[in-house]
Write a protein that binds this DNA or RNA. Sequence first.
DNA 1: TTATTATTGTTATTAAAATAAAAACAACAA
DNA 2: TTGTTGTTTTTATTTTAATAACAATAATAA
Lengths: 258, 258
Amino acid sequence: MQAVGLTEYEAKCFVALSQIPSGTATDVSEIVDIPRTRIYDIAESLQDCGLVEIQKGTPREFRAVSTDVAMKRLQLSHREHLDNAAKALRQLTTPDVRDEASGVWRIEGKQKVAERGQYIAARAETELFGLFTEDAVFQDDCFRQAQSAIDRGVDVVLSSPDEDLRESLRARFPDATIWDPSLDWQTLEEFGAQVSRLVMADRHTVMLASLSKDDGDCAETAIWGEGSDSELVVLCRELVGAQLDELDAEDGSSRFSL
Amino acid sequence: MQAVGLTEYEAKCFVALSQIPSGTATDVSEIVDIPRTRIYDIAESLQDCGLVEIQKGTPREFRAVSTDVAMKRLQLSHREHLDNAAKALRQLTTPDVRDEASGVWRIEGKQKVAERGQYIAARAETELFGLFTEDAVFQDDCFRQAQSAIDRGVDVVLSSPDEDLRESLRARFPDATIWDPSLDWQTLEEFGAQVSRLVMADRHTVMLASLSKDDGDCAETAIWGEGSDSELVVLCRELVGAQLDELDAEDGSSRFSL
DNA sequence: TTATTATTGTTATTAAAATAAAAACAACAA
DNA sequence: TTGTTGTTTTTATTTTAATAACAATAATAA
């Protein structure tokens, strides 16, 4: 409960009141370990949030609103704060100036990595390269972005060291080029940790993600960069670009065979 | 920004980074009044939230994600906390035991008052009485609930001391009974403050709301109660019930005249 | 090339603010 | 008279803000 912005006392008080139809300060203080004398102002504070209703007799009776109503109120309140914050922030900052970021940047967490990958894929205009080492990494939103790129005429090349995954990709994306990296896969492992995915758009934006299994946990982290200023982009252009060029040449012939 | 759960330092740091494409600890500490030496761990903490990305060189470079992404991440995080809290709470409490609440309860705030009014109207099974003193109080959701009650066969009686509002109600709800309270309106003013609305469902649940104009502000507060245990319900049964009974008798004849 | 100065990154200590916890006490009810 | 209630103050603890210390690294000057 505290994670949603309530103090320990507020959270405890609300929990106690949620367990009974209604109660006095003495009741609450017997259910949870809060001094009776503090219940009055804590309940008042919860009333301000819309989580508690107060019957002003002697003794005072308190009741909690239902869980659903409480959650909704907290959410609405948070949403307002977010909107206000966003509004204030937009007055301070120019329109999104972070379109171009030099260097190499680090992202932690599977979801954030996936988001960045999709963002990169969504912005591909002529060419999109994606390499995935595990089926688990290639999720629905990746499917969507890859298909969307194909639909808008982007040259899409997908790759995986795993043959089953390659077959699966081939079946799902008949219009994409599927590349077997076994010829050059060793050079990619020079990055150290277990590479999970590599996404490159227009040879301009690159993200390289890896899975680390420290502590029995399966965490994904990534580095990404944009433009010739980024060492990562320069490197991947060398490593992958050459393969893509070869595929372009072969691609002409394989289309002929279709 | 602090209202959304960030510490002052975190909020300031994020705001500063949002104003520049990227920057070092020294840059940030020149933009906002935070000790340079604190930027490192604060940015780390913001990275954990997904609000900041860090380029680990010397000097370290920091960049903020875009405002939209930041807000979305904060919201998702809050949502998760809410879901977890709701789940935990549901294991502690029995299914909603707050269906019946004795006594008289107080609500503050126009929205909460309106919600409670709608909740009461939605639960009317045979009879719904609503009295409104001002056009402004009778909002869209009130319209909806009144119509919904009519649609499910509930005896709906609406009333207002304001003739224009009464006419408006009569035009909008041809199937409802419209009552002119001028005969007994004085007794209702004995509650003191300016009554804004009175809702009674099935002579079992009652809410009485009032507008107070303290501090130039227009705040609505309400009291409500359920069942024979509630003094408010008992009182309104006396005051309003008799009128409803009379209307029942007249209602028969007015239907005859339609 | 070496020495000096400036910058950087990490940590420890101190100060201030917020929250938790205990105490005091007047007013009211039984 | 005793017990309960409600409000406020004081004290203790925790969290956050603010400052200081200092080793390591980078940049600059000699």
